[in-house]
Design a protein around this nucleic acid. Structure first.
Lengths: 182, 182
DNA sequence: GAAATATGTCAATATGGCTGACGTAAATGT
DNA sequence: ACATTTACGTCAGCCATATTGACATATTTC
């Protein structure tokens, strides 16, 4: 966010919410816009690095989730990212061809292509996660104790109610799958 | 998030962070992934409506910011969205041609095209903001008191330090510019 | 052996970014 | 007054990422 100086500037950082909420529900403008700006900066960190590798956000997402869930099936990834196999195919192929991700036939079901990151892939995945972690950690430092828990609760609550538990379990399972590889 | 059932499921919702933080900083996986899933669902609400109008996220962003900052210059919008005038031009033209946004020459500087939403544009902007507000309000209800303030602080802290004040002032100014139009 | 499943791939299309070049009107500087 | 700069628009082409639909191949299952 280099500069957002749209001619003049104001001062009040919070909208007037005292008491009743006007007719037809007054939009929660501040959070709507903060989500936009915060997310943009958040992914921007990684975008810059990815560009040097000739990759985009799509590659990042695949690399990230394969890293977090070693042995993931292609179908799992499709379901998770909610994209088509054709879209996934393109970026996955590049990641494989360039040695960031590798496939192994499933032991039980040999039609399956289980996905794993290579050491090279792990290095990039960790580099990207490190950048994002740095930003988040800085935010938590600003927020003081309870910041992490608060953020987790807020973000979880934003997720569609019917998919929330699945996402939380997914994240928890990844933590187990990877263990501590600091 | 229809379903994220990647074969098996886990239980622990928070990573083991007790005490020291391994070598080279352990990534804050939960927040990294929650941001991804939360943001996806957050923008998904609007995407569905926009699709019915033949619009995309790019249209939403333009409509949103013009609505929030009536009389914005084209240059302001470019600086805010960080896109090129060619990219903006395409979607802005559609919004104007279809009567959602209108332009007026600047009073002082007649080269400027000041942007305003039409009543039709306001209606759509409010509809989209309403959907997002519903999601955020639901999250705040889950979080209890302090949820709004906590979210605002967390998201603000995520923004690049050097642009943060500008963004906060921008949001504050918009609140004044629009007043209560609930 | 037939049918279903997991994956890969070809082809065409849409959206929303980008760069570069050029045009026009209005403001500004000397 | 004229040259330059500014604000904006637009043409042309390219790239990344997503889509749909069709079809191929291996493997598992009924």
């Amino acid at each position: 966010m280099a500069d957002v100086n749209v001619s003049r500037i104001g001062d009040r950082a919070t909208p007037p919410e005292g008491g009743r909420e006007a007719a037809s529900v007054e939009p929660i403008w501040d959070v709507i816009e903060l989500l936009f700006f915060a997310y943009k900066d958040f992914v921007g960190d990684a975008d810059d690095v990815l560009a040097k590798f000739g990759f985009g956000r799509a590659h990042h997402r695949v690399l990230h989730f394969v890293f977090r869930h070693p042995g993931m099936k292609v179908a799992d990834l499709l379901d998770l990212l909610k994209i088509t196999k054709q879209s996934l195919g393109r970026v996955l192929k590049q990641l494989i061809d360039q040695g960031y991700v590798e496939q192994k036939a499933g032991a039980n079901d040999r039609r399956q292509r289980l996905l794993y990151v290579t050491p090279k892939g792990e290095q990039l995945a960790m580099k990207l996660a490190g950048l994002q972690t740095k930003r988040i950690a800085r935010a938590f430092a600003d927020l003081g104790p309870g910041g992490h828990e608060g953020a987790r609760r807020f973000l979880s609550a934003l997720i569609d109610a019917d998919g929330r538990d699945g996402v939380l379990r997914f994240i928890a399972r990844a933590d187990r799958a990877q263990g501590s590889r600091g």
